[in-house]
């Protein structure tokens, strides 16, 4: 595949494996429009019973963190263990927590 290929824009595919579960990124594909993208997603990614729900999103509509910003975005969380709710004792016999 190269930039001269006329295969349409890139789309990202998300699959829901069971009702109620979150959609997970499965991969990407090429298609010329929405109708073709969802058909292709079905044929490329759900042939073996992978899912019960399917989303396609134009790749250029996804906003992502630039590598140069990664430190500012993610490193500050490294030393904030107190943000995990692990600093209290669970009452014995407590359920449904």
């Amino acid at each position: 595949m190269n930039s001269k290929d006329n295969q349409g824009p890139l789309w990202e595919v998300f699959i829901q494996s069971k009702p109620g579960l979150p959609y997970k990124h499965a991969g990407s594909l090429h298609a010329y429009d929405k109708a073709m993208a969802i058909d292709n997603a079905r044929d490329v990614y759900t042939r073996r019973k992978e899912g019960v729900g399917l989303w396609v999103v134009p790749s250029d509509q996804i906003v992502s963190v630039q590598p140069k910003d990664a430190e500012a975005f993610f490193d500050p969380a490294d030393d904030k263990v107190y943000r995990h709710p692990t600093f209290y004792t669970m009452p014995e016999g407590a359920q449904h927590i």
Partner: peptide
């Protein structure tokens, strides 16, 4: 003509 269509037709 391209991979996606190839899989679709084979399906």
């Amino acid at each position: 003509p391209f991979l996606e269509e190839d899989l679709a037709i084979s399906n």
